[in-house]
Amino acid sequence: MGELLRDHEEQVVNRWAQSVDAPRDELLELYRAILGAIEQGGGDLADLRGLLTELSRSRARVGYSPAETSKAVFGLKGAFYEIVVADADTEVLRGFIRFARLIDDLGLFTFEAYAEAREKIIMDQAEQLLELSTPVVKLWDGILAVPLIGTLDSARTQVVMEKLLEALVETGAEHAVIDITGVPAVDTQVAQHLLKTVFAARLMGAECVISGIRPQIAHTIVTLGIEFGDIVTKTSLADALAHAFRRSGVQVSGRPATHVTVRAEQA
C-alpha cells in the first residue's frame, strides 16, 4: 500500500489538490505524513494529528465550515481510488479499504479539532466582550461609577464586582455608584451578586449606592423576596451622585442655568 502511495505521489497529490479547495504544499505535507504513518504500520499518529489540528485551526479562524475542512481530508480517498482502480488487484483493493478507514478517522479527527478551535475562538470573544462592557468610570474625586448596560449574567456581574473593588483600592475612592439603568431585568442570582459587591466594598471601607432602579426591577426584587437591607438605592444616577456628594462632604451650589460652582469641604 505504502509503495503504491509512494510511487504515485505526484499524480495523487495533483488530483487531490484539484478536487479540494486547499493549497498543494499543505496537502503534500499532509500526504507525506500519512505515508509515513502507513509505512510505520499506522501506530504513531502524533505528528499527523498535530498537522491536522493546525490545518483545522487555521481554517476555523478564516471561516471555513467544518464540512469543508474535513472534506479536504476525505478528498484524498477519491484521488487515490483512481490509482487503485487502474491497478485492479484484489490485494490492493483490500489495502484500500484499510486506507479508507484511516482517512475516515483522520477526517473525523479534523472535525473534532475544528470544533475545539471554534470553541476557543468563541470563548476568547466572550472574554473580550466582558472586558469591553464593564467600564469603571470616575465621576468625581473619590466617587466611582459602574454603568451597567445589557443583560447581566452571573459571570459578567462577577467581573464587574472584581473590577470595581480593584478600582476602589487603586483610586482610594470611598464611594461608588452601581447604575443599572441599562439593565432590562434582574434575577435572584444577579441581585445576590450586586448585594455581595456592596458588602465586599463595605468590608474594604467604601460605600456603594445602587442607582437606576426602574419600577419593574423594584417589583421583581421585592417579589423575589431579596433583602436589600440598609443598602442605599436611588432611581437615577443623578440622585446617587447627589447622595455621594452629601456623604463625602462636597457641596454643589449656584444657579443651574448660568454656572455651577463646586466646593469640596474637608471632612
Binding site: 464586582m161 472584581e162 473593588l165 458588602f199 465586599a200 468590608l203 474594604m204
Partner: peptide, 10 residues
C-alpha cells in the same frame, strides 16, 4: 482589606 479577601469573606 484586599478585594479578593473581601469577596471571599462575603
Amino acid at each position: 482589606m484586599r478585594p479578593a479577601v473581601a469577596i471571599t469573606l462575603v
